[in-house]
Write a protein that binds this DNA or RNA. Structure first.
Lengths: 243, 243
DNA sequence: TCAAAAGTGTTCACCGTACACCCATGG
DNA sequence: CCATGGGTGTACGGTGAACACTTTTGA
């Protein structure tokens, strides 16, 4: 009898999954952007436009569907809010307190994402009543979302010091000052201009362009691009990025 | 009508959780132990004693229950196999490929744990047909468990270099040689005895005992204990552990 | 007395950090 | 011509890595 059943149903029967509890699985995204004008690191939050907790701020989220894995779910959620594909994104961890969502048992997987702030689709952001907040001005969020945000900031600080992910937050062309201010915003401390430049140049993964950015000064400052090919090549040879 | 309902059911109705998919949530544990005699780092695997995949090796696991969070579930699973409470344990990440478990959609959260190998309850281990494997001799495991193991080894290497978690793997009293061999096993490279001793002593978080361990040599080597209080004190003052 | 492991210092290269002045330009 | 930000070099202390010989003692 047993041997006539397809494998899947045998396993189900034997392991007794039916007796186990199921839960909803959510994905919540901490979306970072760097505002070049204000020289501030920001995160994108959505405002709930329905009861209950209407008007409260929250991370953008969604539920895991049958036909996708978590990375796909997170990418989908990010697309819904920003209109962007191929965003840099990393899983942060799981938040599973029993009553974290009072509506129903929901386990949430937090992701953080880095986007170039000027790329996002403003209409889609407006449609979700979303808004950018400075790290120092994050409001109270629903559920355990503040915990997620703090965890994301910590992770970003670590990751940015050990992998060149900072460039995900900058436009294609940027100045040394932009880069330094970005790292200052991430690490939340001031850096010495001479030492920073020296270190970045020593890494030898930027291309100095012939163009200057005249926005910020009369003299103008040289623009750079991140040489991803060169970085990948070097990394394959054992080079480790460290700031 | 709506306003008469309790909050929870309002939220459920509005958010439409019912339309979302649920999934089973599993916890799988990578249990590390350090064999002092063989000077080898090992992990504890269980052998499935039921069909299908009978005889195949697997991580110890279980399902998340309604009335516990993931840390509690992992602690429960660890207790079931080792008889130990209060084990050092950390969440690794989520594994969510759609068909990772062919029986049913199951998202698994991997945890790694560090135990003192001589503390565990041998009867409980035998009862689960569990066995210790050297890191270099890990067999093929079911599902995506090999991926989890690799991820755990990487995480352990990082974490051990940045937090004094190595002591979780050693008995109360240990020699410098034990400690060095442990770090060599974790980092998978040889360390210089003089530099290692110097570094550890400079950290100033061990207590040198008057006792000697005569097992390993005629001369005997001094025993040490980890001074957790002192470490916590120093950490509170900004000290950072680094090996 | 000898084999086997324990214990112990020095040197050098490199890296991180502190620190200040001249340059180019538009208004 | 001057105010503003851009761009650059040096000196020092600390840390990581390489390296070898003496001590102890049980068999």
């Amino acid at each position: 009898m047993l041997s006539e059943q397809p494998i899947q149903s045998i396993r189900k029967t034997i392991q007794g999954y039916e007796k186990e509890d199921k839960a909803y699985i959510a994905v919540d995204c901490i979306i970072f952007g760097f505002d070049l004008n204000e020289e501030e690191l920001k995160i994108l939050l959505v405002q709930r436009d329905f009861e209950p907790q209407k008007g409260e701020w929250s991370l953008m989220g969604g539920f895991l569907k049958k036909d996708e894995n978590l990375d796909e779910a997170a990418a989908r959620v990010l697309y819904q809010l920003t209109g962007l594909y191929d965003i840099y994104m990393e899983q942060l961890g799981v938040f599973s307190e029993i009553d974290r969502d009072p509506a129903d048992r929901t386990v949430s997987i937090a992701y953080y994402a880095l986007i170039n702030i000027i790329d996002h689709n403003q209409e889609m952001v407006d449609h979700h009543s979303a808004q950018w907040f400075n790290l120092s001005e994050i409001p109270r969020l629903i559920f355990d979302h503040n915990k997620m945000v703090n965890s994301a900031i910590q992770r970003l600080q670590y990751k940015a010091s050990v992998q060149p992910i900072g460039f995900e937050l900058l436009p294609e062309k940027f100045t040394m000052r932009h880069l330094q201010k970005l790292y200052e915003a991430i690490l939340q401390r001031e850096l010495d201009k001479r030492n920073f430049t020296k270190k970045i140049n020593a890494l030898d993964i930027l291309i100095k362009l012939d163009e200057k950015d005249k926005e910020s000064s009369k003299k103008g400052s040289f623009l750079y691009t991140f040489d991803k090919e060169k970085y990948l090549q070097k990394r394959a040879e054992g080079f480790v990025f460290k700031i």
